[in-house]
Design a protein around this nucleic acid. Structure first.
Length: 451
RNA sequence: GACCCCAUCGUCUAGUCGGCCUAGGACACAGGGUUUUCAUCCCUGCAACAGGGGUUCGAAUCCCCUUGGGGUCGCCA
């Protein structure tokens, strides 16, 4: 592990002009992992110097998302909008030293202040990219105070990073070109220059920078879809970083102990939704039942109503579904038939499994078998079905498939006899009878069509 | 366009100072097994060092060029 002389201090510095983007979340995560791996501190700073676009709602949303992901911070949140005077002091120092000057262009109430960038080469020894050289004679002087009286990003950022004692700046690749502008600012202000680690961007399927047009990119939308924070954290950590062996499934503790900036790739990476979903299903499956239940209940309730909580077979039903959910909100489509009698019959399933000449007889025979059961469990119902199979000389599938469609409306789902137990005798008998009626009504009309 | 970054399977990646790489793992995909279905699980398969020059006994690994992709060029952050 890398040794650092000063106690490590990092920061995550979002601007509250939108949701927490998945890319921002990864940057926050890398900062968080680095801080924890080095016994350092993480600072949260809100960069709200754009008074037009910054909103309090966005501040809340971003903080909510960070909390949901479990990315806690040690200091802050600090708001740049509250530190205006501080920045002005430093700008004044630069003016006094002749390193900055007032703009002669008058645009607003205040006069903009501009920093003269020295015409020299700047080398950044980036932890991820290695040395990068820039020629500052090629760039224009830098506005550090806007005519609305607020500092610009580059200025406020440098002053804060220095004053807050930030040792490592871990931020997106898109800030690389800001760095050669910021370094002369550190020097002019007499601040030590921190270390930089520019992490590559996250791309969409088409290899362009991940954005709204690639679909949902806010952390909040992943939360709403039913991804677990642990799964998202694990997945995001692997986007651009790897521990070096073939390990992929790692909890936070492992992530922290294995993490290092040096192992972050310098290459952009494409966000693979499929792999995230797979990883999420692993986390759902491997959760304890109680954790899983508390995670999934809000999704179930919003899908089928709060009453589901009182369902006598709730735990049994949820446990049947635990191993087949990729995201939590799938609970809705996969369990509604347990909670309502008003579920949809999937036409393809009906055509394939119910509309067969032998089905009505099988179903009605099964009704007779089930009706006499005293105990109605997965075992007893299965025995009944096996007996029927025996007596009629048919295959197991010949009874199981149509019954599944009769009870659930679809061809896939948990084991049939578990479903029966969860549903209970009465509902099973009614639904099987309904299926028989459905078949009869269908066949009488199709007979006329000669088919 | 200028400046900068990047380049291993479709995707995420391993490949630490060049040899152990006939390039490993995971997701996805295909096939098979288990299963009443789906999912899980197990097995198998498919599939990559962008191209061209060097350097070297030897290069995916180093250098250069080309090509391709990305980022930045705001009194936005």
């Amino acid at each position: 592990m890398t040794q650092h002389n000063d106690p490590v201090r990092v920061r995550f510095a979002p601007s509250p002009t939108g949701y927490l983007h998945i890319g921002g979340a990864r940057t926050a995560l890398f900062n968080w992992l680095f801080a924890h791996a080095n016994n350092g501190k993480m600072i949260l700073r809100i960069e709200d110097t754009d008074r037009e676009r910054s909103t309090l709602e966005d501040v809340d949303r971003i903080i909510e998302s960070l909390k949901w992901l479990g990315l806690n911070w040690d200091e802050g949140p600090f708001f740049q909008s509250e530190r205006k005077e501080l920045y002005r002091e430093y700008a004044q120092k630069l003016i006094d030293q002749g390193l900055a000057y007032y703009s002669d262009e008058q645009r607003g109430e205040h006069q903009a202040i501009i920093f003269s960038i020295p015409n020299e080469k700047v080398v950044i020894d980036d932890i991820i990219h290695g040395p990068m050289e820039f020629d500052n004679s090629l760039i224009k002087d830098l506005v550090i105070f806007k005519s609305d009286g607020f500092p610009t990003y580059n200025f406020a950022c440098v002053v804060d990073d220095a004053l807050m004692g930030i040792t490592h700046i871990i931020r997106g690749d898109d800030h690389i070109s800001n760095t050669p502008k910021q370094i002369p600012l550190y020097k002019a202000l007499g601040f030590p220059v921190p270390k930089f680690a520019h992490v590559p961007l996250i791309l969409g399927k088409d290899k362009s920078r991940l954005s709204k047009r690639h679909g949902a990119t806010s952390v909040q939308s992943y939360q709403e879809e039913g991804f677990l924070p642990d799964a998202l954290v694990n997945f995001l950590a692997l986007l651009g970083w790897s521990p070096g062996d073939n390990r992929e499934l790692m909890n936070r503790k492992e992530l922290i102990s294995l993490f290092s900036l040096e192992r972050i790739s310098s290459k952009n990476s494409v966000f693979d939704d499929e792999k995230l979903r797979w990883m999420n299903s692993v986390y759902i499956r491997e959760s304890s039942y109680n954790d899983y239940k508390s995670l999934v209940m809000p999704f179930l309730k919003s899908a089928v109503g709060d009453d589901c909580e009182k369902h006598p077979e709730l735990d049994y039903i949820l446990s049947l579904l635990q191993e087949r959910l990729k995201v939590l909100n799938e609970i809705s489509e996969q369990s509604s038939f347990f909670f309502t009698d008003d579920f949809e019959y999937d036409e393809k399933s009906v055509a394939k499994r119910l509309l067969k000449p032998e089905v009505p007889e099988i179903l009605s025979n099964l009704i007779h078998k089930l009706a006499v059961l005293e105990e109605f469990t997965d075992k007893t119902t299965e025995n009944a079905a096996r007996e029927l199979v025996e007596e009629m000389g048919i295959s197991g599938g010949a009874v199981i498939h149509p019954v599944r469609v009769a009870l659930t409306g679809v061809m896939t789902g948990p084991g049939l006899f578990e479903i029966m137990q969860a549903l209970g005798k009465e509902k099973c008998l009614i639904r099987i009878q309904n299926a028989i009626d459905l078949i009869n009504s269908r066949s009488s009309s199709s007979v006329d069509m000669g088919k």
